[in-house]
């Protein structure tokens, strides 16, 4: 079962909650940090990330001796990554989306593909004891600084996971391509928000995205009490299950600032999270039913 932890707005506690859920689980679990622009999960997990690998994408490389500067590659490229000027053909690989069109269209077979590193995967595992002893495997995706495209790194991180194990996916914020890449084909999505106007506004966008993608989801309110009641009112009006409220508590903020997780500040939360995981697995049992 794959559960994605997402939110429209950043800083609502996605990572905190992903880590806490993985720690509270009563069976072996994988935690995948798909917030590849700013991965933070590893800070809260004492895992040795001893395996390192590169994430690469294919980019075209030109054999100048074969190229006759016909310009066909530049014509098919929708991303302006190749241009032919007179007797010179130039490739701008940071604009390339790896569609492979130029390779296919080249009449001279002058283009071949080479792998280019755009990010990294670091992984490792650890034994957790938050009431239930289990193994936590951690996979961290991170984008190389200066690279623009995160979806391939997110896809690579997700692919590395064992499909048969309970998997928690910490998603990037927002509702555009990176977030959608992270939540797609998950069995359930938990949207974390805070009870403020910003939180509510961004929650609505996230809800729209979930409905558009036809994914089952529920809402968790973090820092409950710091704002107003409009998030709860919205959820009940929209018939969205609000499955957990985590009280606004300075102990949590302080623990977080030191790189300590939610459960070290509020250990009493562990059984609640465990039963939430159980509930989700019952809701998703017949994969297509039981949503909302």
């Amino acid at each position: 079962m794959k559960i994605a932890i997402a939110s429209g707005k950043g800083g609502t506690g996605k990572t905190t909650l992903s880590v806490a859920l993985a720690q509270a689980a009563d069976k072996n679990v994988q935690l995948i940090d798909c917030d590849v622009e700013e991965p933070n999960g590893h800070i809260f997990i004492d895992a040795q990330l001893d395996k390192h690998e590169d994430v690469t994408i294919p980019i075209p490389v030109l054999d100048k001796t074969l190229c006759n500067n016909c310009g066909k590659c530049g014509e098919i490229c929708q991303f302006n990554a190749i241009v032919t000027i007179g007797d010179k053909t130039m490739i701008f690989d940071d604009m390339c989306h790896s569609c492979g069109g130029c390779i296919l269209v080249c009449p001279q077979q002058a283009l071949t593909e080479q792998q280019k590193t755009i990010g990294y995967l670091d992984s490792g595992s650890n034994t957790i004891n938050c009431g239930q002893v289990h193994q936590l495997s951690f996979i961290k995706g991170s984008i190389k600084i200066g690279e623009a495209m995160s979806p391939p790194v997110i896809r690579a991180a997700k692919k590395k996971a064992d499909q048969n194990q309970l998997t928690i996916i910490d998603c990037p914020p927002g509702t555009s391509c990176p977030m959608m890449t992270a939540v797609c084909d998950c069995d359930f999505v938990l949207l974390v928000t805070e009870p403020t106007p910003f939180g509510l506004h961004d929650l609505k966008l996230a809800v729209e995205t979930m409905r558009c993608m036809d994914l089952p989801f529920a809402v968790i309110v973090n820092r409950d009490g710091c704002g107003d009641e409009r998030v709860s009112e919205y959820c009940s009006a929209e018939k969205i299950p609000l499955v957990l409220k985590i009280k606004d508590d300075r102990r949590v903020a302080t623990a977080y600032s030191r790189g300590e997780g939610l459960l070290s500040a509020l250990p009493e939360l562990a059984p609640k999270l465990r039963s939430l995981l159980d509930d989700i697995s019952t809701w998703t049992k017949p994969a297509t039913e039981g949503k909302q």
């Binding site: 991303f79 302006n80 000027i85 701008f92």
Partner: peptide
Amino acid sequence: NATQGAGIQAAKTVV
């Protein structure tokens, strides 16, 4: 309205 690479295309236009 180019998705990206407007400078590259403009340079080609000029050439």
